[in-house]
Computed example of a mutant assay.
Amino acid sequence: MTPSAPTLAFVESPVQLLNVLEWAYARATPAGPPPLDGIPPQRARSGPAPGEGPGPAAPVRIVVLPPTDPMSRGQLRRMAALARDEGHDVRWQEARGSRLAPLRALAALARDVRAARTIVVGDPFSRYVQLLLTLVRAEELVVVDDGTATMEFVAQTARGERLVRWHRAGGGGLPGRVRELAYAPVSATARRRFTPGSAADGGARRVEVFTSMPVVPHGATTLRANDFAWTRARFGPPRLTRGTDLVGTSLVETGVVDPGRYLEAVRALTAEHGATRYFAHRRESAEKLRTLGRETGLEIVRPDLPLELIARRGPVGRTILSFPSTVVHTLPYALAGTGVTVAVCDVDPSWLTGSASPRARSFLAGVSDTARDVRRLPARTASTAG
Results as ranks from 00 to 15, higher is better:
269 L>R: 01
269 L>P: 02
269 L>N: 02
272 E>I: 06
273 H>Q: 13
274 G>H: 05
274 G>Q: 02
274 G>W: 07
275 A>F: 06
276 T>L: 14
277 R>M: 05
277 R>Q: 07
278 Y>K: 04
279 F>S: 00
280 A>L: 08
281 H>E: 05
281 H>S: 09
282 R>F: 11
283 R>F: 13
283 R>K: 13
285 S>A: 14
286 A>L: 14
287 E>N: 11
289 L>V: 10
289 L>N: 06
290 R>V: 14
291 T>W: 04
292 L>W: 03
293 G>H: 11
294 R>Q: 15
295 E>Y: 09
296 T>A: 09
296 T>M: 11
296 T>D: 13
296 T>P: 14
298 L>C: 08
299 E>Q: 15
299 E>I: 12
300 I>E: 02
300 I>P: 00
300 I>V: 15
301 V>I: 15
301 V>C: 06
303 P>N: 09
303 P>E: 08
304 D>R: 10
305 L>D: 06
306 P>I: 04
306 P>C: 03
307 L>R: 09
307 L>E: 09
307 L>F: 15
309 L>K: 04
309 L>D: 03
310 I>K: 05
310 I>D: 08
312 R>E: 11
312 R>C: 08
312 R>K: 09
313 R>L: 12
313 R>G: 07
313 R>I: 09
314 G>V: 14
315 P>R: 13
315 P>D: 11
316 V>I: 15
316 V>Q: 08
316 V>P: 08
316 V>L: 13
316 V>C: 12
317 G>A: 14
317 G>F: 13
317 G>Y: 14
318 R>T: 13
319 T>H: 14
319 T>E: 15
320 I>F: 06
320 I>T: 13
320 I>Y: 05
321 L>N: 04
322 S>M: 12
322 S>P: 07
323 F>I: 01
323 F>C: 02
324 P>N: 12
324 P>M: 12
324 P>Q: 11
327 V>S: 09
327 V>Y: 04
327 V>M: 10
328 V>R: 10
328 V>A: 09
328 V>N: 12
329 H>I: 01
329 H>K: 05
330 T>Q: 05
330 T>F: 00
330 T>R: 00
332 P>I: 10
332 P>M: 09
332 P>W: 10
333 Y>C: 03
334 A>C: 06
334 A>E: 00
335 L>D: 07
335 L>Y: 10
335 L>S: 07
336 A>W: 07
337 G>N: 08
339 G>P: 10
340 V>H: 01
340 V>S: 00
340 V>E: 01
343 A>M: 13
343 A>K: 12
344 V>S: 02
344 V>E: 00
345 C>I: 10
345 C>D: 10
347 V>I: 15
349 P>L: 02
350 S>R: 15
351 W>G: 00
352 L>A: 01
352 L>G: 00
352 L>T: 00
354 G>W: 11
354 G>N: 11
357 S>K: 01
357 S>Q: 01
359 R>P: 10
359 R>W: 12
360 A>E: 03
360 A>N: 04
361 R>P: 00
362 S>R: 15
362 S>M: 05
363 F>M: 09
363 F>R: 07
